[in-house]
Design a protein around this nucleic acid. Structure first.
Lengths: 221, 221
DNA sequence: CAATACCTTACGGATTTCCGTAAAAAAGGA
DNA sequence: TCCTTTTTTACGGAAATCCGTAAGGTATTG
């Protein structure tokens, strides 16, 4: 079993709540961080000291507080820590169940496990850690079902950016200019109009506001 | 100290994580429910058996799953349980920190305490329970600061309805017709335009979509 | 009752979005 | 390479919005 693991989790109750998991698995050397920056620092230090962590268990959402932090989310922590220690096993333990969040992590092979923080989450966590230790990947049953459903529409980068700009109050003209300076293609107003119309048609939306409302409800945005 | 308490919380890790709180306070009789409906049922049963709970600690968000439930949120549970047992002390333990959510609960005197599920949440929880036992009310410091300074704008009925129609993709013409048939005044297109402009000015929004985005972020919608 | 302020409505022009058509450019196939 | 298909862009008119102005209504106050 893993000997030395790192936990990045900000809610203290959860930190205490998963202690039984370590007992069940016989893991003694558990280090906690309530901040992503802190977790990264500890991982780097352990690596430098030649006693690296073997597993990172982390949340995705971290509440911002008075501390100035560079890494604001679990995703950023994962990306940063992978650069330092590419072979580190990573398990996410989060209550986020949106395919849009999970899919890039899971299919990008950034993580070895994803456990859904639900009513039975900490039970699954034990299984997950065991599987990952054996070299397998593990995804909570409910979530793997969600991901399997291949009708999982994910908005492209272009569409997401376009809609974000609209949400921020830019006119189509302004978006065109932005796209030009940013080198986003296609950048013409015609294309912007066309993509927007395609999206509206696809989701049966009558106006951009209607479209965004629908996409938000579908958690696609 | 309280002798018999009820906890409504769906995340199992948190359920385990707050166990030290009961130890610290010497509370032995703790009943857990992972569903609001179940919690209400247990409270009613205890009342019927003449051994009522003295305190309810509950979360606000509950993950929907296969179970068919009537009460979908902590707010609904609180409202329902108050009807059965008006003198029951209630403490909310949630990571929700939006004034719009907290204010109605707090100022409506529906609850005796609200603890923010943050990095130090379970420490505050101990204090909170002690205060509530002494007959005081308790609010996490950060949240009471938020409540004090937030000038808490609440949108009127008219504005809410107008924005809802816009979100549903209606044009201003269609909204005017709807208002006429529904007897909502003022119903003229001019007035609709004017209110919308006023809202946009008030919140520094450039477009209706921008406005709705801002209001959603402020949890005013 | 009159004067005032405020709200509602009507209207018109400027701006923006919407939508179809068609040309230009790029990508793909034989 | 040449041809076809797809994508991007340009353009123009229709529709919707945005915004200021002004007229009509209602309530308030002295």
């Amino acid at each position: 079993m893993f000997k030395k693991i790192l936990v990045a989790e900000d809610i203290d109750a959860i930190k205490k709540g998963i202690a039984p998991v370590w007992d069940a698995l016989g893991i003694v050397d558990v280090t906690y961080s309530a901040y992503c920056d802190d977790a990264l620092l500890k991982a780097k230090r352990a690596l430098y000291d030649k006693v690296p962590f073997e597993l990172l268990l982390c949340d995705l959402s971290f509440i911002p507080d008075h501390r100035n932090v560079k890494l604001q989310s679990g995703e950023e922590l994962i990306a940063a820590i992978k650069k330092e220690q590419p072979d580190l096993k990573i398990i996410v333990y989060s209550y986020i169940d949106h395919p849009q969040t999970i899919k890039p992590l899971w299919e990008g092979n950034d993580i070895d496990g994803y456990v859904w923080k639900d009513r039975k989450g900490s039970v699954q966590l034990v299984t997950c850690i065991q599987e990952v230790y054996k070299g397998q990947r593990y995804l909570s049953p409910k979530l793997s079902a969600v991901l399997r459903k291949s009708n999982m529409i994910v908005l492209g980068d272009y569409e997401t950016r376009l809609l974000q700009y609209l949400e921020n109050g830019l006119t189509q003209d302004e978006i065109q200019q932005r796209f030009e300076t940013e080198g986003v293609l296609p950048s013409s107003k015609s294309s912007i109009e066309k993509r927007l119309k395609e999206l509206k048609d696809e989701f049966n939306a009558k106006t951009p506001l209607h479209l965004v409302t629908i996409l938000r409800n579908l958690r696609l945005l």
